[in-house]
Every structure is written in structure tokens, then in C-alpha cells.
Nucleic acid binder design. Structure first.
Lengths: 191, 191
DNA sequence: ACCTGAACACCGTTCAAGT
DNA sequence: ACCTGAACACCGTTCAAGT
């Protein structure tokens, strides 16, 4: 006789994300997730292969949200100058990271191989930046340019989240300075 | 009656680093470290406050090594063009990261607050880059320029180590492309 | 002064037994 | 078909007892 479902994969992933953000990665235990969704820990394994798998699902969900956010920004003003659009994208990534720092970090530094998001979802979240990079640097250099912009963005935000900017100075201004330099450097019109 | 020392802090940190590199962060257990140095796990707490503290010590040691490496590169050809020197520094960081990827990742994404390296040692490892950045961008923009270069470098390498470059293309070439663009963008002589 | 075994409170995960 | 308690093999850490 079937038992009525007492939870769902969605609820588990959502609970995991909340827990990750409020308690950090070490607080994301199967027990804690089970408590949140009102089930015993072993029951989670009906919907999730392992804790690593749960972490991967959280990464995947976060990545999808980021991709949606960036798509919205990119398509908001399709006519705007590509330098401005790249700048807006970079600011959107930073705002997203600040709204959920733990989940953001998870995307870019998975604690294990099995918890890394799939190449497909990574590619999807890079689409908006790739398209602006193509406009800026031209089709031949689009991939390299997108990588340069993405590397700088994730590097800056990663250092910021890790508390790496303790030499003083205005971090917001450093971000603005950086994105302006990067955008100009990638702009083929500038030569 | 005192017992002769059966291990030392240095040996523990070294064993921890080896273990980290060969087994990953999750393989870096107090038990495994104790086995390596020939002691029982509780004895480690005579020299180390906690596992987090051991991780911090490993980060600190790695950071000191990186700083020494970069100092050596920076002072090898003091007369060279700053663009070339920044390029060499960037390549040195990447080579260092590849020689010990797990320890490298630890420096830039500490798994917890207590395992982060001290601001002082971070500042020390940034000295070489800061000095080239000052030459390139001028004293007023030195800090912002150093942050831009560092963010790009750590971001690129972090993505590479996380396996984030699966869209194809030549990653070595993307690195060369990026550092050339960044160096040119920071160079005030180019304007 | 250092080292140890025993113990504590946790983990992630498996599995037979329940409904 | 889902859920559970019990169990297993691990953790990090503390502490009294040994030398």
C-alpha cells in the first residue's frame, strides 16, 4: 500500500539552499535537510543519490537562476552600447553573488568532482556574456573575450567574498575601474 | 617524566599538504594526518588547535611559497618592460597553481572563516604584483590595477581548475590573450 | 610534557522491516 | 512506493590516565 509523499525533490533542494545560505556548507547536512522537510534522513535517498548530488542540484538551480537574471539584463536594452551592456552584466553578477554568497561560491568552487554543475548548465549561464563578448571583440575572439571577462568577474567577486580585499581602498570603485578597463580592452573599436 | 617528541608542527603541516594534494580536502582528516606522522589523532591537538587551524597553516605555508616564487620572478629582470614582467608573474601564478591545485584552491576559497590565511600573508604575496601594477598604471591607480590583474588571474585559474573551460578552444591561448589584454588595459602609456 | 585509549556527539549511507 | 529505526563505518574533539 503506497504511502503519500511527505516531501519532494524541489522542497529538498530549496531546504538545502536555505540551509547552505544560513549555516554554510558544513551546516548543509542530510540530517538538517531532513529536519527541515519533515522526514528522516534516510528518506532523502529516495530522491537524491548522495549529499554530493544534492549539492550539485543546488548548484544547478543557482546557475539556472543566474542565467535567467543575465538573460533579462542582456535583453532589456538590446540597442545599448556593448560596453554598457557588459558593464551591466558584470554588476548583475555581483549583485546576484551578494544575494546568495554561499550558493554563488558553490557554483565556482564545487567541493568535489561529483558536486560540480553540468557543462550544459554552465554553458547556458554563459550565453549572455558570450553574446556581448562577440559584439565587442568580434566573432573570432568572442570565446577568448568572454573568458577574459568571466575570469575577471568571478575572480573579483570570489576574492571579495573570501574577504581578500583588506588593503583598503574603495572596493566598489575597484570593481567599476576593473570592468571599465576590461570592456575597453576587449572592444575592437578601440584597437 | 617528559616523553620525547614523536612529531612536530612542521611535519604535521607537511603531511597535511601531501594528503590534501593526493586525497583532496575530504581526505585531509585528522586520523589520516596522524597516521602519516606516526601518532594517534588526539596527539595532534598538542600542536594544532583544530582541523580548521591545520588548514589555515597549510594555506599560510602555500601562500609564503607563492610569495617567494613571485618575488623571485619579479626581481629576476628588474629592467624588463612592466608588461613583460606582469605577464611573467601571471604565468608563474598559473604554474604554481598547477603544481599544487588543491593547496592553491584552498588559499582562494577557504572552506570556513577560521581556515582563511591572515591578511598579512595575503598582503605579502601580493607585493610583487602590486609593485608591477604601480609601474604600469601609476601610483594612484596601483591598487585598483593590482586588483584587476589579480582578480583576472585567480578567476581564470580557478575556472580552469574547476574544469570550467569546456566550450572548447585553446585554454593556453585564452590565458595569453587575457593577460595581454589586461596588461595593455592597465598600461597608462597606451592610454 | 607529550601521548594514549576511551568516549561523546556527530556525520553519510545502507537496509530490512513496516505501512 | 515511500518511510522508518537500527546499524555501520566513519568523523572532530575532549579528557582522564599513563609514562
Amino acid at each position: 500500500m503506497p504511502t503519500p509523499d511527505r516531501t519532494s525533490l524541489d522542497e529538498i533542494v530549496r531546504a538545502g539552499r536555505d540551509l547552505l545560505e544560513s549555516e554554510g556548507l558544513s551546516g548543509l547536512s542530510m540530517q538538517a535537510v531532513a529536519d527541515r522537510v519533515g522526514v528522516r534522513a534516510p528518506s532523502l535517498y529516495k530522491r537524491v543519490r548522495s549529499r554530493d548530488d544534492l549539492i550539485r542540484l543546488i548548484s544547478e538551480a543557482t546557475l539556472a537562476e543566474l542565467a535567467a537574471r543575465l538573460d533579462a539584463v542582456a535583453s532589456a536594452e538590446p540597442q545599448a552600447d556593448p560596453v554598457d551592456r557588459l558593464t551591466q552584466l558584470a554588476h548583475a553578477v555581483r549583485a546576484f553573488a551578494r544575494s546568495g554568497p554561499e550558493a554563488y561560491r558553490l557554483m565556482f568552487s564545487p567541493p568535489s568532482e561529483g558536486s560540480a554543475a553540468s557543462p550544459e548548465s554552465i554553458a547556458r549561464s554563459a550565453a549572455a556574456i558570450l553574446s556581448v563578448a562577440a559584439e565587442l571583440a568580434g566573432p573570432d575572439d568572442a570565446l577568448d573575450a568572454a573568458r577574459t571577462a568571466t575570469a575577471w568577474t568571478t575572480g573579483f567577486i570570489g576574492m571579495e567574498l573570501a574577504g581578500g580585499f583588506r588593503l583598503g581602498g574603495d572596493v566598489d570603485q575597484a570593481y567599476a575601474y576593473g570592468i571599465a578597463r576590461i570592456a575597453a580592452a576587449l572592444d575592437r573599436r578601440a584597437g
